[in-house]
Simulated scan of single mutants.
Amino acid sequence: MMRDVSIHWEEGVQSCSAVWHSENGIAAHKKVVTADDTLTADDAYHLACEGTAILWRGDFQNARQLLQALVRRIDKPSKKSKRASKRVDKSADATPKKTAKDIFNQHRLIQSQRARILGMLLIQCNADHSISLRRAPDLSQACLEAYGPVTQSYVVSLRELLGVVSVHEWRKNGLPILADENGEPVFVHPHYGVFSPVRGEYIELVCNAPLPKALDAESTAFDIGVGTGVLSIILAMRNIKKIVATDQDDRALTCAKENIALLNLGSQIEIVKANLFPAGKAALIVCNPPWVPARPSSTLEHAVYDPDSQMLKGFLAGLKNHLLPQGEAWLILSDLAEHLELRTRQELLSWIEAAGLLVLGRIDTKPKHSKAFDDSDSLHFARAAEITSLWRLKAI
């Protein structure tokens, strides 16, 4: 849904405007110039760095190439910055060593600055989501899925637009999450703005953890924070008869409903809009909350960042009132925050104890994603040591 905020620019002698759209919540740019294929990458980079947005009027494919050129200029330090870095290295012994939290905060700042610069290259879309540029592909379906129907022309960053296209391909082709009893892959289809289950290690934990005996008496489960519906789907395929899945985000609720319908699991899984828990009690309650206790910089980051561990604390605090006798809760959580010094293991254990819960056991796994093996990543020290765990909890 488009926000009622306009972006303004001059085109020749004419004053122009359109609706401004940013999923990251970036305010409409104040300084906007139009540009075409004659604009050099160096000039574009200087404009973006000084806070001037570039509304593209040239060839669409050239705009994509220009964006890549901006990426190269951001990610490749200049000779001057390299010399400065060497001088800093020589005097490193005289400066205090950065903490893990310092490194994380610096990483977030760099990522924010990078996103700001790359977000300065803008594209205008028509009211039918088409793009009136040479060699522009038909992105109308992808934009319709992400933004819904609109009635006016709008301007969006090319970087965001390419993200919309990437998710459209995921939604169209699906993401394999596991194999069914016949060995055939089972797919979920992520929607724009819904966290995609690309990290398979936590899926394997939920597939393989021993089911609590309380399910024998009452085969019910709650899935808190349903997202794409992946955990509910796994529980249904593990023959749990009734699963109630909750979320507060409308995009997630729509996505989960569609995925569940595609797999004909609607008779087992009910989707409910709720803050954490639905009404009633269950023999099994699962939750994969955001893993990093930091403030998200956009609505798209809410699945990753949980300010002050609010969702995690709320989940733990409410479990005792929603578990059936002998019921069990599965908390799927990475210890990345501990390696980044954003949360301690003792804090987590104290929240579990304060909620009247007992740890029955923990199943651990190492990450398999590429960043865990990329030693050029500033957070590699934490990612390489990361463990993802399924905590088995019960009420005391």
Rank of each mutant, 00 (worst) to 15 (best):
K82W: 09
A69Y: 11
L390F: 11
V167D: 14
D308Y: 05
L390A: 11
A53M: 02
L324T: 02
M120E: 08
A127T: 10
A214L: 13
L312Y: 07
S166A: 15
L262H: 07
S112L: 12
L121C: 11
R251C: 05
Q106H: 08
V5P: 01
I332T: 02
D75I: 08
A355R: 08
K394T: 15
C287Q: 06
D138F: 01
I177L: 08
D42P: 02
A100N: 13
I224G: 03
G58W: 05
P176G: 00
D335R: 03
D102G: 12
V272I: 15
A27R: 13
F315K: 04
S157L: 09
Q106L: 09
D375F: 13
I203Y: 00
M1C: 14
F187E: 01
E201S: 05
G229H: 10
V5Q: 13
R108S: 11
S267M: 11
K79P: 00
F60Q: 08
I117S: 02
Q268P: 04
D308R: 07
I234T: 04
V198N: 06
V359R: 10
A261K: 00
I203D: 00
R3F: 01
V194P: 06
D375N: 15
S378E: 14
D374P: 02
L144V: 05
C207D: 03
